[in-house]
Write a protein that binds this DNA or RNA. Structure first.
Length: 889
RNA sequence: GGGAGCAUAGCUCAGCUGGUUUAGAGCAUCUGCCUUACAAGCAGAGGGUCCGCGGUUCGAACCCGUGUGCUCCCACCA
């Protein structure tokens, strides 16, 4: 695959397509059970209707890094792709598509509608999976799952039946959150509370007796929803509120419709809020409903399911709730009921899916009893059987799990798993997978009855029209993708379950993570994953959440095309510290692109050296030093990076690697071994440099798979099947050479110091200078003298100063005298040295203060005291050195 | 209303067990360089009241208390 001449920059478009195809052709991402330990990850299934956004990109990049790392460490890595049927979102899209064609959902009927929905799914359902390939995700494409695949569908139904039989699913009439636009119930989690500017209307009700005869008194209540007075069935006051004692036991007339309603007393009513009197509308408010239950009040539902007024309202029939609110206020005012209006800010619930204002509504729905399931699921997190990263989410989880409420799982939709409940005309119902099973159940219960002859036939059974909440299928995801419920005990489930790590957004910790833990424990008897990594939320530069309505989500595919997949991965990860939200800024992608470019140029340099040929001057001590130093440095940092990876500190690992490559490898090491202009490099250095680069590419591969694979192949001819993608990283336990590391640090510091001197004294880079070094470490300097000489463009003399006409600089115990042909500005010199002297003296004072403190010397650990003593000795030596230098001027 | 988290350079963040740091990185800024790997670059530099106050300690960016300011989660006082 090696090309003869390299392009100026890395050509990402061509390389990405070629390498991804190459990996696919060689089935590198496919996994089947074998002797190796498994490392499995299940993708959080994106909505089948979805298209790739920043959140997906971050989330899947992280998963890909974990999976590729595992592959390098010799695990049998398996990353399972798939999509979620997303009942509400998908159904909404299909309905909209039909509407554009002039077809209404209701006119089609269930069967026809589902035909369109499947058609739509086949057409658009795979888009997001194709997009995941663009960012390099190493998913096992033989294992694509969909939450409505036949086996999956079947498992969902059987889980429903099983939980029903265990008494954990029940049908009940409750107040639910109703979405009048999507015409479906919502679970509490699907309701978003938003602060809303409202008006608080004070309305006067006339007091009367049971028969409706007026007493001439009035009572004033406050409400933000004046239209709901038509459903009022009581007025409530606090029993100890002296203002209303005289009203106890009396009645009131609902304005406009003159219904007689009782005045009741309940502690629930806050004396100090509003007027202290509360209108009670059991059909349209959660709390009012509870009050109604308690006091046996009538429930008058004044709305149809789409939010328009029904006959029960008596007025405004057929008009929308918000239109009615607008109309009823002037009418109440005209009739003298409106006392006053004030501005008021309150929390209003909106549907997560349709953004409609949620209407609390009484209805018959299916529920999962959560408390028994939650108990175990809380335990495994508390005991760190499942570890959360960052750990702070444990608190959140505990808090929610201990106050958990039952889960409303029915949705008034057609797209999804249809609830397996069958009804007879008399209202009896049977939970069963098929009509036949339901009939069997009916017959079983019938035989227990006295009358043998049944009034019904099997055809009288009607299946429930509703579907299950999407999360009721996705909570089975970690095991059902391996067919762990539909084909229990199969080889895959035994090998891959529990999965290793789940990577997801903290927003769905309750929707999904908690419920998967419950389902895993209930149906596999084991936790579904060992680690959960919560990513941050991707925000824009100003910290706003990315959203369609703000139009601040960038077009990811365009960015990949422009910058390349690796830079996009780099950019989004580098800005993503563990546990924090990420502020997305395109400049991070630029940094990624520049880094790609840097890598490519390092490759070009190695290739240039190779083409020029090598000499056999392997005895050069300086090159030996450079090679030995980088070897030590690489070993040191590789260990650090591995440790960070194990701790899920991926952003930090990438930063460290970036600096190792850019600074240590390119800026220091390659410059140190670089031959003089036009000369050949020695064979040993070229070989070492290539091997180091290869190792760096291996370390970087999980983060930036495309360019690293390209470079790996450009570095050398590789036999068939020798690809970075499947290369196992060697486990090196060799300790890095500490002496070399220290010598390298010294060399770097000396180079920087001398360059600084040159800069500050306007010594032109091209002009060679004379550098005199006064040191006790002559042996060390001898090791890298040639490197130093080249790096600072100086002739080196090892002898004691001072040197006349030279700039003097002090570094620890060493002194450097830099002499150029031009005149030196002495005042500037003295100034610099004096500033340094002052700093050192202040430092010495602070250290001495510490050491003269008896309490410190007695209390602190001996090694700490020793460090302080060394600091003092060093400071004294430095001060001495600077003084001498000043005198020498 | 209840709970959690955060506050360190212009920006985004490290600082893990209180002492090796009178605080580090990247980006941005400034200065000098078009030096045949790379100007998408090289070399160098400047930049800080570790949010305020109080406490614990020989010693605090770090632990405790408190105030302020942000963020998030939970909670339908109409």
């Amino acid at each position: 695959m090696t090309k003869d001449t390299l392009s100026k920059n890395f050509e990402h478009r061509e390389a990405e397509a070629r390498w991804y195809q190459h990996w696919l052709d060689n089935a590198y991402f496919n996994s089947t059970p074998d002797d190796r330990p498994a490392y499995s990850v299940v993708i959080p299934p994106p909505n089948v209707t979805g298209i790739l956004h920043m959140g997906h990109c971050l989330n899947n990049t992280i998963q890909d890094i974990l999976v590729r790392r595992a592959r390098q460490k010799g695990f049998n890595a398996c990353w399972v792709p798939g999509t979620d049927h997303a009942s509400i979102a998908t159904e909404a899209k299909v309905v909209q598509m039909l509407r554009e064609r002039g077809i209404s959902k209701s006119s089609l009927g269930r069967e026809e509608f589902l035909k369109y929905a499947w058609e739509w799914k086949e057409k658009y359902g795979g888009i997001i999976l194709e997009q995941l390939k663009k960012i390099g995700c190493s998913l096992d494409w033989n294992r694509v799952n969909f939450t409505m695949d036949p086996d999956f569908y079947d498992s969902v139904i059987r889980v429903f039946i099983d939980l029903h039989e265990k008494g954990l699913i029940y049908r009940g009439k409750r107040m639910i959150n109703w979405d009048p636009r999507a015409l479906t119930a919502l679970s509490d989690e699907e309701v978003i509370m938003k602060e809303t500017q409202s008006k608080l209307y004070h309305l006067q009700y006339k007091i009367c007796d049971e028969k409706g005869s007026l007493s001439g008194e009035t009572v004033t209540i406050a409400t933000v929803r004046p239209e709901t007075i038509l459903g009022d069935t009581a007025i409530a006051v606090n029993p100890s509120d002296v203002r209303f004692m005289h009203l106890h036991g009396k009645f009131a007339l609902v304005p406009l419709i003159d219904r007689v309603i009782p005045i009741i007393t309940d502690d629930y009513v806050a004396i100090d809020f509003g007027t202290g009197a509360l209108k009670v509308t059991p059909a349209h408010d959660m709390n009012d409903y509870q009050l109604g239950e308690k006091h046996g009040l009538q429930v008058i539902d004044i709305m149809y399911d789409n939010g328009t007024f029904s006959e029960a309202a008596q007025l405004y029939i057929g008009e929308d709730r918000f239109a009615v609110r607008k109309k009823i206020v002037p009418e109440l005012e005209a009739a003298g009921y409106l006392v006053k209006t004030e501005d008021y800010t309150n929390q209003v619930g909106y549907s997560e899916r349709s953004d409609a204002v949620v209407e609390p509504r009484l209805s018959l729905q299916w529920w999962v009893k959560m408390a028994p399931l939650a108990e175990k699921a809380l335990g495994v997190v508390e005991q760190d059987e499942i570890r959360f990263h960052p750990a702070k989410f444990k608190n959140l989880y505990r808090h929610w799990m201990s106050g958990i409420k039952d889960w409303c799982i029915s949705r008034q939709l057609w797209w999804g798993q249809r609830i397996p409940a069958w009804y007879l005309p008399d209202g009896c119902y049977f939970v069963a997978a098929t009509r036949e099973d339901a009939w069997k159940k009916y017959e079983e219960t019938c035989t227990m009855r006295e009358d043998e002859t049944s009034a019904f036939t099997i055809h009288d059974l009607q299946q429930d029209d509703d579907c299950l909440d999407t999360w009721f299928s996705s909570w089975l995801w970690p095991f059902e993708v391996f067919k762990g419920y539909s084909h229990p005990g199969n080889q895959d489930i035994q090998y891959y379950y529990p999965t290793a790590t789940l990577v997801t957004a903290p927003e769905i910790i309750f929707f999904w993570v908690a419920r998967m833990i419950m389902a895993g424990l209930e149906y596999q008897g084991q936790i579904p994953f060992k680690d959960v990594y919560f990513t941050g939320i991707v925000r824009d530069k100003q910290g706003r959440k990315m959203s369609k309505s703000l139009g601040n989500s960038p077009d990811l595919l365009a960015l990949i095309d422009q910058y390349g997949a690796d830079p996009v991965r780099f950019g989004i990860l580098i800005a993503s510290p563990a546990g924090n939200d990420i502020l997305f800024d395109e400049s991070a992608l630029e940094q990624g692109r520049n880094f790609s470019n840097k890598l490519w140029n390092a490759l070009k340099l190695l290739r240039l050296w190779k083409e020029r040929g090598t000499n056999s001057l392997t005895g050069k001590a300086d090159s030996h030093f450079a090679n030995a130093w980088f070897k030590a440095r690489l070993a040191q940092v590789a260990t650090e990076i591995d440790e960070m990876g194990n701790q899920f500190r991926l952003s930090e690992a990438l930063k460290t690697l970036y600096s190792l490559i850019w600074d240590d490898y390119c800026s220091w090491y390659l410059e140190w071994i670089k031959p003089a202009y036009g000369e050949q490099i020695d064979e040993d250095s070229l070989q070492q440099a290539s091997l180091f680069f290869e190792e760096l590419m291996l370390l970087l591969h999980p983060f930036m798979p495309f360019i690293t694979e390209s470079i790996y192949h450009e570095l050398a001819e590789r036999p068939e099947g020798d690809d970075l993608c499947i290369k196992i990283s060697p486990i090196s336990s060799a300790m890095p050479d500490q002496e070399k590391l220290q010598q390298g640090d010294l060399l770097k510091t000396v180079i920087t110091t001398i360059r600084d001197v040159r800069n500050k004294n306007q010594m032109k880079p091209k002009n060679r200078v004379e550098l005199t070094i006064e040191t006790t470490l002559t042996d060390t300097y001898a090791i890298f003298e040639t490197i130093l000489s080249n790096q600072v463009n100086a002739d080196i003399v090892m002898e004691n100063g001072p040197v006349k006409g030279a700039v003097t600089v002090v570094l620890e115990k060493d002194k450097f005298f830099v002499k150029a042909e031009q005149q030196i500005d002495l005042t500037q010199q003295i100034d610099t040295l004096k500033k340094d002297l002052e700093y050192q003296q202040n430092f010495l004072t602070s250290v001495e203060k510490k050491l003269s403190n008896e309490k410190f010397v007695n209390h602190a650990k001996p090694e700490i005291v020793a460090i302080e003593q060394k600091k003092r000795a060093d400071a004294i030596a430095r001060i001495q050195n600077i003084r001498e230098s000043l005198e020498g001027l």
